[in-house]
């Protein structure tokens, strides 16, 4: 474990927890794409199939449990919570799952490190994580609503991406045989898409500021 990896995990964890806490506190999920949150829940569920079979460390197991618990809690809040679910704008969150999920299944079946069930599911989760932000991007472009997408959430998610890439570079130079093309390429694609997300976030933020100026 290097410092980039630990910091990356912590910012990733914080981004999910900040979102969950915010929804819990303000009892609203306006501006949040349920589809993106559901895709993230699927990402964790398919990636951590090894949680009970391969023990890596106590840290690893606990983090997996927290990611699974928090991502499914966010989905539960948006779908089931009697107050929160009213603030979810279903008509705006229209991105079709099939356009994201099917290509990821297809790609995971043909491009993977090993053709076993667990390995294909793990690869699928990497591809899915790379593009899971797309429904959120579409929603953001459509509504320009950044009320609930706080600066913290965007900052933490971006920091997680950047730190993971630094972690890979560090591991490449310090560990023998550390070459993993699939997570690297998927991770770079994800980071580039995130850059787009950040662009719209910044743009919306700027526009909102302008609207709030006194006449």
């Amino acid at each position: 474990m290097n410092i980039f990896r630990l910091a990356g995990d912590m910012t990733h964890l914080a981004s999910v927890l900040v979102l969950l806490l915010k929804i819990h506190t303000i009892k609203s999920c306006a501006g949040i794409s349920l589809k993106t949150q559901e895709l993230y829940a699927i990402v964790f569920a398919t990636r951590y199939l090894d949680i009970f079979t391969d023990f890596i460390s106590l840290y690893n197991t606990i983090m997996k449990l927290i990611f699974l618990g928090s991502s499914f809690s966010i989905v539960w809040y948006i779908r089931q919570h009697k107050i929160v679910r009213r603030s979810y704008d279903k008509d705006q969150d229209t991105f079709r799952y099939v356009f994201i999920v099917l290509p990821c299944i297809f790609l995971a079946l043909i491009i993977n490190e090993k053709f076993t069930f667990k390995e294909v599911m793990w690869t699928f989760s990497l591809y899915l994580e790379a593009v899971a932000i797309l429904p959120q991007l579409v929603l953001l472009q459509r509504t320009r609503n950044i009320d609930n997408l706080t600066g913290q959430y965007v900052f933490l998610l971006g920091a997680y991406r950047a730190l993971y890439i630094l972690n890979w570079i560090y591991r490449y130079f310090t560990e023998p045989h550390y070459i993993h093309w699939i997570p690297w390429i998927a991770g770079i694609v994800q980071t580039l898409l995130y850059g787009d997300f950040f662009y719209y976030y910044f743009h919306s933020w700027k526009n909102n500021k302008k609207l709030q100026l006194p006449a």
């Binding site: 995990d9 990733h12 090894d50 391969d54 460390s57 690893n60 972690n167």
Partner: peptide
Amino acid sequence: ELEPEGHDEL
């Protein structure tokens, strides 16, 4: 030195 089995990243 070979890599351990399984994925150690989250």
